[in-house]
Nucleic acid binder design. Sequence first.
RNA 1: GGGCGUGUAGCUCAGCGGAAGAGCACUCGGUUUACACCCGAGCGGUCGCAGGUUCGAACCCUGUCGCGCCCA
Length: 875
Amino acid sequence: MTELDTATQRPDLPAAWTPAEVEAELYQRWVDRRYFEADVKSDKPPFTIVLPPPNVTGSLHMGHAMNHSVMDALSRRRRMQGYEVLWLPGMDHAGIATQNAVERDLAKQGLSRQDLGREKFVERVWEWKEEYGGKILDQMKRLGDGIDWSRERFTMDEGLSRAVQTIFKKMYDDGLIYQAERIINWCPRCQTALSDIEVDHSEDEGELVSIRYGDGDASIVVATTRAETMLGDTAVAVHPDDERYQHLIGTEVELPLTGRRIPIVADAHVDPKFGTGAVKVTPAHDPNDFEIGQRHGLPNLTIMDGRATITANGPFLGLDRFEARPAIVAALRAEGRIVAEKRPYVHSVGHCSRCNTVVEPRLSLQWWVKVETIAEAASAAVRDGRTKIHPAELNKRYFDWTDNLHDWCISRQLWWGHRIPVYYGPNGEVVCVGPDDEVPTGEGWRQDEDVLDTWFSSGLWPFSTLGWPDSTEDLKKFYPTSVLSTGYDILFFWVVRMMMFGLYAMDEVQPFDHVFLHGLIRDQYGKKMSKSKGNGIDPLDWMERYGADATRFTLLRGTNPGSDMAVAEEWAAGSRNFTTKLWNATRFALANGATVARALPAREELTAADRWILDELDALVSTVDSNFEAFQFSRACEALYSFTWDEFCDWYLEIAKVQIADGRAEATQAVLGHVLDVLLRLLHPAIPFITETLWTSLTGGESLVVADWPKASGAERDVDALAEIEGLKKLATEIRRFRSEQGLKPGQKVAGKVRGACCVGLTDQVPSVRAMTRLTEPGEEFTVSATLEVGLPKGAVKVELDLSGTIDVAAERKRLAKDLAAAQKELEGTTKKLGNEAFLAKAPAEVKAKIEERKAVAESEIARINERLAALPEA
RNA sequence: GGGCGUGUAGCUCAGCGGAAGAGCACUCGGUUUACACCCGAGCGGUCGCAGGUUCGAACCCUGUCGCGCCCA
């Protein structure tokens, strides 16, 4: 240890890596040094990621942890490559979710939002946000996110509110935002309209009731799962070609319980094969019926209010929809009008995605975004490659959406959100107000009561956060953003909206160049993680016990475009083991003088092992780099893992021990230092904390965060060195196998001779092989009691051992028999192939040569093994 | 009903035309001068099934069964 190069090395690494104790400190140091703050004045090329803003009510779950690991790895690599990296953080005000959370709080005090009134309630939400909101931001720091905290935004902050108002006004003026009375999804609990994507469908048990309208020849039977809506029927519809009902089309029937007479209309959209082929038409309470009503000029009769209480005059007035349903069925039954009842009847029912209440289709006046043109633009940007989706297989789903998008209902009957900037005057005036316009005041003027869908403001995120509508330096430098990373489950919720708004607001410049869509996290049996199943794993728990690095590595290791990943405790433990391995290996190398202070010796001065590990490293750089470029994080991590553990630790470090002891210390220490230097750089985007600690210790450098990303040399690999090390591996493994099967303890030293290494070019590797297999120099009294032969491409190496006694003949026979069987199988396969004339005629020459070589090797192996078997004494 | 994807070792997955792989689990042996969060050795698969294309198929095609997701 006297050779330590104290100039660069700081041998102060503790014996064990204790992530939970040191990661926070490392993170703070990065933040203090302002590494993550983007410089808008920089000449470097920009690399921008906007963080998908988590809900202000949210906390970090595995899905976030995965997505953040991806974004952090991407941006750390780009930073090392010399880009000016901006990763911009922020949060979403999450309209319904946040309002519900605060309302729940109020309810505990026996209060409702109406008790407070609008202004006070909104104040209360802001207070709530200050106190409880944004927990997730601290959790992101824990994970190591290299994010620019100086640019944090909130969808309701002043600048973003200005962006919302600006685009609303622009779209209103362009005729892309309008008001219309239509059937919308209504949540009777949240008391608001919902867009299609805020409705979750599930297969629920309900009832299917068939009701006879009218009597005798003029009667017609309709079936419904929502009998209570019959109070609002204004027609019965049949298919125009339906033979059964030709005589009824154009006539009227009496609607039971009401005495109203309603027409029977013919409409091509009725499916004659479903049920009786006749449907009741309730235009005010069903989207399809609404359209039928429009086509036939039927009246829209509303029979329920916003709380889903019956408002139709009569015996059911004031009943809740679920009370009214059985009551109405009972009343119909009493009149003998129920023809059939199926119960339970399983059918698809929509639920509010926020509170799970059954959604009620409701006719109401709402604000809409006309999507046709902007959806076309969103589609075009992907079709012409301005934005690339990874994996490309999801393009089709994207197009399915952009090509079939319905107009988007953007008004919500909530208090928490961006209020619609439209004012109504006393004489029927309607004025849309931009951010710099004067708000009309005076007698009789009032603002629209509704707020905008949360996705309206988050759809502006890629440019509103950079200062739009102002033409800011940030916007010029960092738009369009480079990558949007998110789960494929919100491709449509959010990505499509950002595309539409971004292209519209930014003169057809796409909001992002690449969209990376990762999969969902599942449990170890491939089941979706969910609260109800109780199979969720808290990433904070992993970070506490295994470290942020191990958590990140686990998630990145399973992340490929579009594919889900299963995780379990064992995976995280395995990643922790990996970090421990890296820690111990680096400490060991440092203790043996690994250094970057000396230049790498010229290639011809290096051993085959040195050249081999440097070639492997070079290949690793290429592999990691290209996989990062293609968002193939799993492959990049696998390559890093197997290089670190299987090649560097298991083989090169063992060889290095021998080289250092044999007087090649200087060169070996330089190689060790170089390999670790490059390896730690490559690992840094995935596991920033431990690599930072090890690398600064190894190199004395300032920080890996701002270190250079390695480049592959592109040099051809040294095939001779590779062959030598492969020979070394085979030789060592075969000797170990022999020892193991002979029952020798792993640590037991055995005198032995290695013969014939020179003939196969392995002379230089013999000392390492001897050390790895615990062979000692033969002494005076060396007697060969066991011999094994290791078949190598260029010939066999013979190893003679003095086991101080007889060998286990049975075990040896078994070992040889196994090898023989394998060789025979190989001979059989290759012989058959080479006997096939079609193969000989059509297969390429290099394939044939390969098979011929394999056959030759198999033949010599068989001969060799048979000889050995014959030479063994009888059992 | 339409679309997409997927079935490979006990589990989770990689490989996607020329010798069946990894991690975990399992078995055996280990106080090896980095590491038991470790080391060494080993066990384990007719690559869902049936046809076809090909000199050659886990890989391409067709059909079939199972599972998952998205949209109706």
